[in-house]
Design a protein around this nucleic acid. Structure first.
Length: 874
RNA sequence: GGGCUCUUAGCUCAGCUGGUUCAGAGCACCUGCCUUACAAGCAGGGGGUCGGGGGUUCGAAUCCCUCAGGGCCCA
């Protein structure tokens, strides 16, 4: 006997192993088949599965499974990226536990630990994806640090450098003093914090007075190189050209004028500190001011500060206020709220810092990437992201691609002792270049020093759709030619610029075409309070535990129930519960059919014949709808349509129609049709719920040894008989009305009732008679012209009577009819008003007017029926 | 401060290029049921002036303006 509830645990592993053993998900180029390709957004190699991954990968799996069933050569490439900062942070923490400091290790030693970490934890997230049912081609698993992908990154760097797109320069960058590396603008989170705005008096060098400036960063005054006022500010005209003395250290700096200074802010006098503020840096360049950098890379003050050397910037800030107070330079302190950048990785306050970095020029590269999104060659879903994308691309800044880290692709630049820089694939290559191009024949490899920095992780993942097929190193290989451009990319909107835009750029630069046709941007999974789910907040359920509790299919559908593209998904375990319940529903429908005794000798009864004809059309109608929703990437809506088809139409209606009497067998023809429908439904549902559909599909008939629903054809819609669908809508209304009557009168569903119908279309009800009897438990069905004894009610314009001995509440019935009449008359009035409005008849489209006329006629007929019924009640 | 976006039932959302008295779905809720597939279920039911105001139109949840509030991105 089959279990009463569906038990996913026993089934999921069995089928996943079966799929893998038979390599159903592995793909090779088949020139005669249409390819369908997705590359996974590579998760951090150090990561574990979170709710965002679940949503994201469920959607990818649905798309790829459907394509596979549609006969396409489906290829979903999995993999991970090396995540420089995140991985280093974890490795550093691991070393700390073992009592080892990163700075005590050589680069190679440290990298050994990184690999150790990667090998230990690197596979976890991919293993977890299997639990979800992900149908990736695991043989193609890639990692951004594996040799071919590593080489691709280096080759691209050299290529872009040779083209003149990569340059080295001093720039103000975002410095994370805790991680001791640069981070990109995108990795800086602005947070509003309370600060102190400190007013400081600088005495003039000529003793003619003083000037007061306001600053939030008093610890940087030792790096001041000027004081700037607005040239139109009358208060300070007399000061321009004079010199002021920096408090505590007494260095003289000029007072200059520039429109940049806001007269209203603070005192209208700005201290200019080019090394420690981006705007000041620009101002300094404009006025040819020197640069004094008083911060070390760990955020402490260096010897250039002269005082407080070695103190952390925040400690120094407190201490210097005390010193300034003692020296009598402190005028006042105000509370001030402003935005301060924090590192996404370490949450340290970002320091604008001047340093030598590598940059990629974005202007030329971004042009095709902007154009082809705007003209929909690449489609963003939902399209509202086009605006955001354009805004970013039109204001794109050069990309700082160097990171002061060790774990990553080391920049292939080699320096001679005089600082000359040679970009080459290897030290040997660099040496050869130096010897030939610079005529330095005496040079040895010992004289070359490789750049210490690695490339930004995104500088490897932007090649992902190409490099996973080795399309950089071997541009004409079979795989890249077949699978590229890929079809769909599914990812989170937060990395639209980090990653998506840059992949598009790389696609056009290296393949001359788009990397993917559609970008589906999922929502962000949030908790009930609207907060983003994150590990640090601890507000996220463990996805694996969820799967164990509800089953992978339940979790997949649960996540999808309320997640239209681009909209956030407020997660609620109730959704997953609903998903599990759905599985159970399907399971029990299967149980029902398995319990039937089938006899070959009898033929289908009238109810079954009608039911089969109806469901045939109904299934085709839904199929058409689902396929259309898929083309619009409305996956959640597609699931909902499938859900309703199975639960409402198949289980609640169809199965009840064909279900034999208790203890009676079912005829073979009806049984076969039902199984056929079930088969179609399972194939339709398989992309959403791969495990349970495979289990049922395998058990509902004889299957060949290596047959799988994964490769069974996806259902295609056939003809829809709209007349029968319309008839059944009336049937359902009628059955509902009778059940409602039973409910309000307290009549058991087991009590059969006689039904009389007064109608102009008897044939319609004649064809439905068997079903009316069965679904509403009607004992006899007659057609009448006059009112018989009993209760009456309306469905559309037809009147129905049920003889309930002695239980008629005439007043209540009259009241119901009166309400119905009132409503219908109101309806008729509004329709008639519309039709008597000449401008409506003139302006509205013909079919709209025609519809209104139909409504008018229907309403009039209905009013007549109601009035007659009322008249009979007296 | 600039740009984008959103506001519809108690909750989460759907309602495309205006056209049924148009206001919908799921969950939640209420009533009655252990009916021989399923209580993770069955049958039935209530619930909203579509954020406020103004405008365009024969007709507005849908288009325009404005106000209020939320979110995201950028400075």
């Amino acid at each position: 006997m089959i279990s009463k509830t569906y038990s996913p645990q026993e089934i999921e592993e069995k089928w996943y192993d079966f799929w893998i053993e038979n390599r159903f998900f592995s793909s090779t180029p088949h020139p005669d088949k249409e390819p369908y390709t997705i590359v996974i957004p590579p998760p951090n190699v150090t990561g574990v599965l979170h709710m965002g991954h679940m949503l994201n990968n469920t959607i990818q799996d649905i798309l790829v499974r459907k394509a596979r069933m549609e006969g396409k050569e489906a290829c979903w490439v999995p993999g991970t990226d090396h995540a420089s900062i995140a991985t280093e942070a974890k490795v550093v923490a691991m070393l700390k536990e073992r009592g080892i400091q990163k700075r005590d290790l050589s680069r190679d030693e440290f990298l050994d630990y990184c690999w150790e970490w990667t090998h230990k934890y690197g596979g976890i997230i991919l293993q977890q994806l299997r639990k979800l049912g992900a149908s990736c081609d695991w043989d193609r698993t890639r990692f951004t640090m594996e040799p071919d992908l590593y080489d691709s990154v280096i080759d691209v760097f050299i290529d872009l450098y040779t083209k003149g797109d990569i340059y080295r320069g001093h720039r103000m960058v975002n410095w994370d003093p805790q991680a001791r590396t640069t981070v990109s603008d995108e990795e800086v989170n602005m947070k509003e914090v309370n600060q102190k705005l400190v007013y400081l008096r600088y005495d003039l060098e000529d003793n003619s007075g003083s000037v007061t400036i306001a600053t939030t960063r008093p610890e940087t005054i030792m790096a001041d190189v000027a004081i700037c006022v607005n040239p139109t500010d009358e208060r300070y005209q007399h000061l321009i050209g004079k010199k002021a003395l920096i408090p505590l250290i007494g260095r003289a700096i000029p007072i200059i004028a520039d429109e940049y200074v806001e007269i209203e802010f603070g005192t209208g006098c700005l201290k200019v500190t080019p090394a420690h503020d981006t705007n000041d840096y620009e101002l300094g360049k404009k006025h040819n001011l020197p640069i004094i950098d008083l911060l070390a890379e760990d955020g402490t003050l260096n010897e250039k500060a002269q005082i407080l050397v070695g103190e952390d910037r925040f400690v120094a800030r407190k201490k210097i206020i005390k010193l300034l107070t003692e020296a009598g330079n402190l005028v006042k302190v105000e509370e001030y709220r402003s935005n301060v950048g924090h590192s996404e990785r370490t949450d340290a306050v970002i320091e604008p810092r001047l340093s030598e970095q590598w940059f990629l020029k974005m202007q030329r590269l971004s042009e095709p990437a902007l154009e082809h999104v705007m003209n929909d060659t690449i489609q963003l879903i939902p399209p509202k992201f086009k605006n955001t994308y354009r805004h970013w691309m039109e204001n794109v800044r050069d990309w700082n691609i160097s990171r002061q880290l060790w774990w990553g692709h080391r920049i292939p630049a080699y320096y001679l002792s005089d600082g000359t820089c040679i970009v080459a694939k290897s030290k040997r290559e660099a040496l050869r270049k130096a010897q030939h191009e610079l005529q330095l024949f005496a040079l040895t490899e010992e004289d070359l020093r490789q750049d210490e920095d690695v490339l930004d992780t995104w500088f490897s993942s932007w090649l992902w759709p190409i490099s996973v097929f080795n399309g950089i190193k071997d541009p004409e290989n079979k795989d890249i030619n077949y699978y590229y451009p890929t079809n769909d990319l599914v990812t989170a909107p937060e990395i639209l610029f980090f990653w998506v835009a840059r992949m598009i750029i790389a696609g056009y630069e290296y393949k001359g075409t788009y990397p993917f046709k559609n970008v589906y941007l999922t929502g962000i999974v949030r908790d009930k309070q609207g907060r983003k789910m994150s590990k640090s907040l601890g507000n996220s359920p463990d996805p694996i535990e969820l799967i164990e509790k509800y089953g992978a299919d339940g979790v997949r559908t649960g996540m999808l129930f309320s997640s239209p593209a681009g909209n956030d998904l407020p997660f609620d375990e109730k959704l997953v519960e609903q998903g599990r319940n759905f599985c159970n529903k399907v399971w029990n429908a299967f149980r029902l059919t398995q319990g039937w005794e089938v006899v070959e000798t009898t033929t289908p009864n009238e109810a079954s014949l009608r039911a089969i004809a109806w469901f045939e059309s109904r299934i085709n109608q839904t199929l058409t709808e689902v396929l259309d929703l898929f083309t619009k990437f409305r996956i959640s809506d597609a699931l909902n349509a499938v859900y309703k088809l199975i639960w409402d139409d198949f289980c609640a209606q169809y199965l009840e129609m064909v279900k034999p009497e208790y203890g009676s067998p079912i005829d073979a023809a009806t049984y076969q049709s039902t199984l056929q429908f079930f088969d179609t439904l399972m194939r339709l549902t398989h992309p959403f719920m791969p495990f349970i559909t495979e289990e049922i599909w395998q058990n509902m008939g004889q299957r060949a040894e290596k047959e799988t629903i994964c490769l069974a054809p996806y259902p295609q819609p056939g003809a829809i008989d709209h007349a029968i669908l319309a008839d059944f809508d009336i049937l359902f209304e009628l059955v509902s009305a009778i059940r409602n009557l039973r409910n309000t009168k307290g009549i058991s569903p087991k009590t059969a009732l006689p039904l009389a119908i007064r109608t102009d279309s008897e044939t319609r009800y004649q064809t439905l008679e068997a079903l009316i009897r069965k679904l509403a438990n009607v004992s006899e069905l007659t057609f009448v012209q006059e009112q018989p004894e009993g209760m009456s009610f309306l469905v559309r314009s037809d009147e129905f009577f049920i003889n309930l001995s002695g239980e008629i509440d005439v007043d209540a019935e009259r009241e119901t009819l009166r309400k119905e009449l009132e409503y219908t008359e109101g309806f008729l009035l509004s329709v008639s008003k519309k039709l008597s409005n000449e401008r409506f008849v003139q302006n509205a489209k013909g079919d709209v007017v025609e519809k209104e006329r139909q409504k008018q006629a229907d309403a009039e007929a209905k009013i007549v029926t109601i009035k007659e019924a009322l008249a009979r009640l007296g």
